[in-house]
C-alpha cells in the first residue's frame, strides 16, 4: 500500500511539475525569437540570456524531479499505513507547487530578451534583474519542496490513521495549491521590471525596489499555505473514526490551497502595474508604491478569509 502511494505520488509530482516550467520556458523562447527578429545583430547575447532565464525557470521542475525520484526509490519500509497518505501528499504538494514558479519565472526571462534587444547597452543590468526576479519566483516552489521533504522523511507512525491521513493530504494540498498563485504573481512583477529597466535604464533602483516589495506581498498566500500545512503536520489529532473529522482537515487544506491561488495572482498583477509605471514615471515612485500596497492588501483579504476557514476547520469544529 505504501509503495502504491509512493508511485502514484511520484507520477502526480512529475506530471504536474513538468507543466509550469515547460510553459514558462516556452514563453521565454517565444519572446527571444521576437527579440532576435527585432535586433538580429546581437542574437548571440539574446541566445545566452534566453538560456540563463530558462535554466532558472527549469529549477521548479527539477525540484519536482528530485521529489519524484525520492518517492520512487526511497525505502519507506512497511511501516504504518499513515505513511502512504504522507507520500501521496508529498507528491501532490510538489506537483502543484512547481506550476506557478515555472510559469512565473518565464516572464522575466522573456521580457529580459525583449529588453536587451531594445537597449543592448544595459544588458548586464537587465540580466541581473532577471536573475533576482526569477529567483524570488522560485520561493513558492521551494516551500512546496520543504513540505514534500518533511512529508517523505518525518515519522508519522505515532498519529492515528483516522483522521491523520486527511491532515497529511491536506498539508500537501495547502502549500502546493497556494504556491501556484504566488509563483505566477511574482513572475508578472519581475517581467514588468525587466521591461521597465529596458525602457528607462536609470529607473533601475526604484523599479527593483518596487518589484521586490510587490513580490514579497505576492508571496504571502504561499506563506499562509505553508503555515496551514505545518499546523496540519505537527498538531496531534485525537483518533476518531468519524468521517467528519477527516473531512474537516481535508477541507482545511483545500480551502487554504485554492484560496491562495487568486490573491497570489492578483497581488502579482498589481505589482506588475506598479513596477511598469514606476519605471516610466520615476518621480511618482512613492505614490505608486503606496497605491500598490493598498490594492494588494485588499486583494489579500480573500486569502485571509480562506485561512480563517481553514483554522476554524482545524481548531473549532
Amino acid at each position: 500500500m505504501i509503495h502504491v502511494a509512493a508511485y502514484t505520488g511520484g507520477g502526480i509530482c512529475m506530471g504536474l511539475g513538468a507543466m509550469g516550467a515547460a510553459i514558462g520556458e516556452g514563453y521565454t523562447a517565444a519572446q527571444a525569437n521576437l527579440a532576435v527578429s527585432r535586433n538580429p545583430k546581437i542574437s548571440g547575447d539574446l541566445f545566452k540570456n534566453m538560456l540563463v532565464g530558462q535554466a532558472v525557470a527549469e529549477s521548479a521542475s527539477i525540484f519536482a524531479l528530485v521529489i519524484a525520484i525520492l518517492l520512487l526509490f526511497t525505502n519507506t519500509g512497511t511501516g504504518a499505513l499513515i505513511k502512504a497518505a504522507a507520500l501521496l501528499g508529498a507528491g501532490i504538494c510538489m506537483g502543484f507547487g512547481a506550476i506557478g514558479s515555472g510559469v512565473g519565472s518565464g516572464f522575466p526571462g522573456g521580457q529580459a530578451c525583449l529588453g536587451i534587444a531594445r537597449q543592448p547597452a544595459v544588458t548586464n543590468r537587465i540580466t541581473t534583474n532577471m536573475l533576482i526576479g526569477s529567483a524570488v519566483c522560485q520561493t513558492p516552489a521551494i516551500f512546496s519542496m520543504v513540505v514534500a521533504l518533511m512529508l517523505i522523511f518525518m515519522d508519522f507512525s505515532h498519529s492515528a490513521f483516522y483522521p491523520g491521513w486527511a491532515a497529511l493530504i491536506g498539508a500537501g494540498l495547502s502549500t502546493g495549491l497556494a504556491a501556484i498563485g504566488s509563483g505566477y504573481g511574482g513572475g508578472m512583477a519581475a517581467g514588468a521590471c525587466c521591461e521597465g529597466i529596458a525602457r528607462q535604464p536609470e529607473s533601475v533602483g526604484n523599479a527593483t525596489t518596487t518589484m521586490l516589495v510587490g513580490q514579497a506581498v505576492s508571496q504571502t498566500p504561499a506563506i499562509f499555505g505553508l503555515l496551514v500545512s505545518f499546523i496540519l503536520m505537527f498538531k496531534t489529532f485525537p483518533e476518531s473514526p468519524a468521517l467528519s473529522a477527516s473531512m474537516a482537515l481535508l477541507g482545511a487544506g483545500i480551502s487554504m490551497g485554492f484560496g491562495g491561488i487568486g490573491p497570489g495572482i492578483g497581488n502579482g498583477m498589481t505589482a506588475e502595474g506598479a513596477v511598469r509605471w514606476v519605471s516610466r514615471r520615476m518621480e511618482h515612485a512613492g505614490e505608486l508604491m503606496r497605491i500598490m500596497l493598498v490594492g494588494q492588501a485588499v486583494s489579500q483579504s480573500t486569502a485571509i478569509y480562506a485561512m480563517v476557514i481553514s483554522l476554524v476547520l482545524i481548531f473549532v469544529v
Binding site: G262, G266, M269, S299, Q300, T302
Partner: peptide, 13 residues
Amino acid sequence: AIGPGIGEGMVAA
C-alpha cells in the same frame, strides 16, 4: 477566493 483575488488585483494594477 480565486475570483475576487484576481479581480481585485486587476483593479489595483
